[in-house]
Amino acid sequence: MMIVTTEEVAGYETKEVLGYVKGSTIQTKHIGRDITAGLKGIVGGEIKGYNEMMTEARKLAVERMVKEAEEKGANAIIGMRMQTSTVMAQAAEIIAYGTAAVIEKK
């Protein structure tokens, strides 16, 4: 599956637009990460536990988006974007979305 953030793929022609696809996940913090984050807030530095959590959340959101695109018969997702939002005090949603399409080399 080709995934691009552009509206067109150089060297390819969009044969069919299959529609909007998305994948999302909501991740929560756990006490171990909160303790580490609290300490980092005092002394500074990267909060690796949160970074790992968000990396995994992005990966999962993209995997879910790809699955939805494959179910529609797509071989590409164009115009892909990601967003995050806080859904409650201890949880964040990651959403990946784009347009499922069938593309062919020119």
Score class of each variant (00 low, 15 high):
L18I: 04
V9Y: 05
T6H: 03
S85K: 14
E71V: 08
A10H: 03
Y50I: 10
V21Q: 04
E68G: 07
V4W: 00
E56L: 12
T5K: 11
Y50E: 13
A91R: 08
Y97Q: 13
Y20T: 06
I26Q: 09
T99E: 15
A89I: 10
Q83H: 11
S24Y: 07
R64A: 02
E7S: 11
M53E: 07
V17D: 04
K15S: 04
A89H: 10
R64M: 04
T55S: 09
R33Q: 13
A101F: 06
V21D: 05
V66A: 03
K67F: 07
I47A: 05
I3E: 02
G44A: 03
E63V: 05
T84H: 10
T28K: 13
E63F: 05
K105V: 14
E52F: 08
Q90M: 13
T84C: 08
V43Q: 05
E7Q: 11
K105S: 14
A69W: 01
K22S: 14
A92K: 15
G41H: 07
G49S: 13
R81L: 09
V21G: 07
A101S: 10
G23I: 01
G98S: 08
K67A: 14
G73F: 04
E7P: 01
K105E: 15
I47Q: 11
I94S: 03
E70Q: 13
K59M: 08
A69T: 02
E70F: 04
A92R: 14
I95L: 13
Y97F: 15
K40M: 11
K22I: 04
A10V: 07
E63C: 03
V4D: 00
M82F: 12
Y97R: 10
M88H: 15
I78M: 01
S85G: 09
M2D: 09
M1H: 06
V66W: 00
Y12M: 11
Q83A: 14
T55P: 01
E70H: 05
M65D: 08
E63A: 11
E70M: 10
A76Q: 06
T14Q: 05
A89Q: 11
A37Y: 04
I94P: 00
K29D: 10
M2Q: 12
A101G: 06
K72E: 06
A37I: 02
M53V: 09
E104K: 14
A61T: 05
A69V: 02
T25P: 00
I47L: 06
A69F: 00
T99N: 12
